[in-house]
Amino acid sequence: MIRLSGVSHFIGGAQILHDISLDLPKGGITALIGPNGAGKSTLLSLIARLTPLKQGEITVDTLKIGGCSDRDLARVLAIMAQSTHVSARLRVRELVGFGRYPWHRGRPGPADHALIEAALERFGLLPIADRFLDEISGGQRQRAFVAMAFAQDTDYLLLDEPLNNLDIAGARGLMRLLRDMADRDDKTILIVLHDINYAAAFADRIVALKNGRIAATGAPDQVISDTLLRDVFDTDAKISRIDGRPFVMV
């Protein structure tokens, strides 16, 4: 379980997050949604320790963010940041291989190599395993990073807007892979999403943020409503239901 209590955050003089307390149970996909500037990415990067936590407390299982070693946390929590630009010229297989680093610290064994191959196969990366990262499409690159996180073999996975710049096939493919990881491997996935329809289709739980405060939490068909769109997103788009699932009519 990821537990946040009394988390506040300031950037410059502006308060980005206001006293957030939230429990995210183990298992399933939780989508963090909200308008631009709501604090979604900030919240995620605090849990991922990409931004130092100054006020409040965050724990992942028994590990306290800021109070545990980076190595221990890397075996429990994998992250995929918003910018996946790598300046080093790496092949796909090398990148996925780095996922094992928290476990072998630079000396991979046969078990590590087997896990890397398994991750490549599962994410359909075997045909392009020896290509360089700058020679493949954006969708393939995102998939390679998710495969790396998968190879890291952690219970928790955090992703910050992984669907940015992906076409519909790439975005759906990636979300299906995440869904599959949640269902088959009991991963707990926390994901920042922009598109409410993707959240409605793939997430088990939704946490909506507005102005640094939690506006709503719950299952997609309970949370996503006309009122949510009006109050949180400041738009008058309508919701319609198809096969019992809410859709935003854009």
Binding site: S83, R107, Q152
Partner: peptide
């Protein structure tokens, strides 16, 4: 080995501990 990981960028390196 640590330098290899640092070369992946700050965010990814952090994620790998």
């Amino acid at each position: 080995n640590r330098l290899d990981v640092l070369g992946l960028g700050d965010a990814t390196a952090t994620g790998l501990g």
